[in-house]
């Protein structure tokens, strides 16, 4: 589904991603973990070209998205993204937040989009918030709305960039619950997170990144039970 070849990214002289090649299959739930500054967020942000790779190619369903001639907007319409800081649009109601993109990209009529929004909001238990503004919501509610907003575009893959890192501990659970549901429905997911429990329970594959490389990867139970690389062992001993 997503094929990454020799992906390199540097900011000026600072090399953030060092020649990464990776493949993500449909239906996979790939969890990316690693210390801060390891390049995991940058890796994720390259997948929908929020960061432009310095070198290498990324192919999504046969389309080379790093080719400047590719209509990146069309590709992004099929890739949902959820951010650490939610990034809801504060100038719009929740309903408008959700329906803006499907309507403007002509995916749905306003009426269809409104129905979709209502259905999705019901699913995350926030249907009564449709006419509220983002400032009136808690962090956990905002993040659930952000997930719903991405889902309204009916994406084929969902990218999560540390979705629970900015939340109060109390609110982490409600967001992870929504993500778990999504995983059970078969959504392809790439999740950058520090939630090891989530990685173990929901992930189908765990990638450990450090220094701009994927140092180690495995099926989650094996990964957490028998880490091979010394750096992985050191990292896990600190976080678990």
């Amino acid at each position: 589904m997503i094929d990454v070849k020799n992906l390199t990214k540097s900011f000026g002289d600072h090399l953030v991603l060092d020649d990464i090649s990776e493949h993500i299959n449909p239906g996979e739930k790939v969890v990316v973990i690693g210390p801060s500054g390891s390049g995991k967020s940058t890796f994720l942000r390259c997948l929908n070209l929020l960061e432009i790779p310095t070198k290498g190619t990324i192919t999504f369903e046969g389309t080379d998205i790093t080719d400047p001639k590719t209509d990146i907007d069309k590709v992004r319409q099929q890739m949902g993204m959820v951010f650490q800081h939610f990034n809801l649009f504060p100038n719009m109601t929740i309903r408008k937040n959700i329906t803006l993109a499907p309507v403007r990209t002509k995916l749905m009529s306003q009426a269809e989009a409104d129905d979709t929004a209502t259905a999705l909001l019901k699913r995350v238990g926030l249907e009564e918030k449709a006419d509220a503004y983002p400032a009136q919501l808690s962090g956990g509610q905002k993040q659930r709305i952000a997930i719903v907003r991405a889902l309204a575009m009916k994406p084929k893959v969902m990218l999560f960039d540390e979705p629970t890192s900015a939340l109060d501990p109390e609110m982490v659970g409600e967001v992870l619950e929504v993500m778990k549901q999504l995983a059970e429905e078969g959504m392809t997911m790439v999740v950058v997170t520090h939630e090891m429990g989530f990685a173990r329970e929901v992930g189908s594959r765990v990638l450990f990144m450090d220094g701009g490389k994927i140092l180690e990867q495995n099926e989650p139970h094996a990964f957490f039970a028998n880490p091979r690389e010394p750096r992985t062992i050191e990292f896990l001993s600190k976080v678990l």
Binding site: F83, R104, M153
Partner: peptide
């Protein structure tokens, strides 16, 4: 992040 969120939705 507002620009990024908008663009990530395909706008």
């Amino acid at each position: 992040g507002q620009m990024e969120a908008g663009r990530s939705l395909g706008l």
